[in-house]
Design a protein around this nucleic acid. Structure first.
Lengths: 211, 211
DNA sequence: ATCTGTTGGTAACTCTTGTTACAGAGGGAG
DNA sequence: CTCCCTCTGTAACAAGAGTTACCAACAGAT
């Protein structure tokens, strides 16, 4: 039952009446890994509360070049979608399921109401903004202060963390897209990391040793 | 009088009773250009509403390397300071007055109350988060997708915009700090931009032609 | 087994950025 | 004016990252 699942994941965040309302107005959505949930420029009408799995958030420039911003995990939401809803704005980012995921989609109309009626909801939204802000700052730090080899290792560690698996199933090309570089560079640096004993390489499988 | 100044800058954002409350509890603060307003790791107890001038927001890594994130202008606030206040968290960023500036400092106790009593305040806070998020995304785009010469030109244009002056009074070293690179690189690229007719160089003064 | 498309390894080269070193220009203090 | 310090220009070199090209290894299909 929806309310049970909800209580399991958000019981410590929201009070009972709010949980009930969310269960009432929310809609369960299951997505398979790799599925796109939202695109840049798309209008936003609902807000996801993640129950399980992980979502990766991407940015794209005019030329179509991509960059991974961060992952959203269980118990999180995409705060940006909130104000977007409220203001009727378009999405600034793209969201793709990193693993099979479950979430509850909440319609914008209720969100606005809850903002005034439930202190816990208000707090949740503000905390979410704060958390996302912090992650974006992390991303900026990574881009500004780290070299590609460290960015790569960090990416592999992050990926292992959100999937809960130290075996990463991804091609060098896919990793290159996430870090906005070329496949050759990734292959080169992966080999270097392997020589340093931090990972081991197999076809379609990178094992992160240095977690 | 404080209320008049406040109404002038925020009259279209907040309703009259809220303006009055802000005037009552807020404190006017004037700072000179170059003065540091907040440091990384410092506790936050007040939130600024900017009346005039501009504040630059910086990020720093463990080694003390800096990076300019964005500018805050008139009519804006530092949304991050809001949740920091609420959660009693430490600042993630450093804030330095880019120009002489005036702001109203609002104590945290009132902010919480207004969140429930004034819809316009709630909207203001959410809009502010959204705006800051958008600026951070801009920063990420700049770092990820632009080369240093374009970053430099963009920086000069931004700086000209927030100061309202196409003459930029800064040494090459200062610019290098903001962009997290070395003075030599900046001198080199500035000369290149001058040859391309986009700026003109003088001692302690860069004139932006291509605005 | 053979063919084919995908994935990964590597070399060679270019371009951008960072580093070191040094010299000259400008401006203020004495 | 002279001294001294800061600011700027430039050269030469090093390192990191991007690009192109090519080949080998592998997996699935026929």
């Amino acid at each position: 039952m929806l309310l049970d699942t909800l209580t399991e994941h958000y019981g410590f965040v929201f009070e009972a009446p709010l949980l009930k309302e969310i269960a009432q107005y929310g809609q369960l959505k299951k997505v398979a890994a790799g599925m796109q949930l939202m695109d840049i420029g798309a209008p936003i009408t609902q807000m996801p509360l993640l129950l399980s799995g992980a979502i990766k958030i991407l940015r794209e420039d005019e030329k179509g070049d991509e960059l991974l911003l961060y992952f959203i995990e269980r118990g999180d939401t995409c705060a940006m979608s909130f104000s977007c809803c409220m203001g009727g704005a378009k999405s600034e980012i793209r969201a793709v399921a990193e693993t099979d995921s479950e979430m509850i989609m909440v319609p914008v109309s209720q969100m606005e109401k809850w903002m005034f009626t439930y202190k816990s909801w208000q707090q949740f939204i503000l905390d979410s903004y704060q958390a996302r802000m912090k992650e974006l700052l992390q991303t900026v730090d990574t881009l500004a202060f780290l070299r590609m080899d460290d960015r790569l290792l960090k990416h592999l560690q992050d990926k292992a963390k959100v999937t809960g698996d130290d075996h990463i199933h991804a091609t060098h090309q896919e990793i290159a897209y996430d870090l906005h570089t070329s496949r050759v560079v990734i292959s080169r640096l992966l080999k270097k990391l392997e020589n340093e004993g931090k990972i081991s390489l197999h076809r379609n499988d990178i094992t992160v040793i240095d977690l």
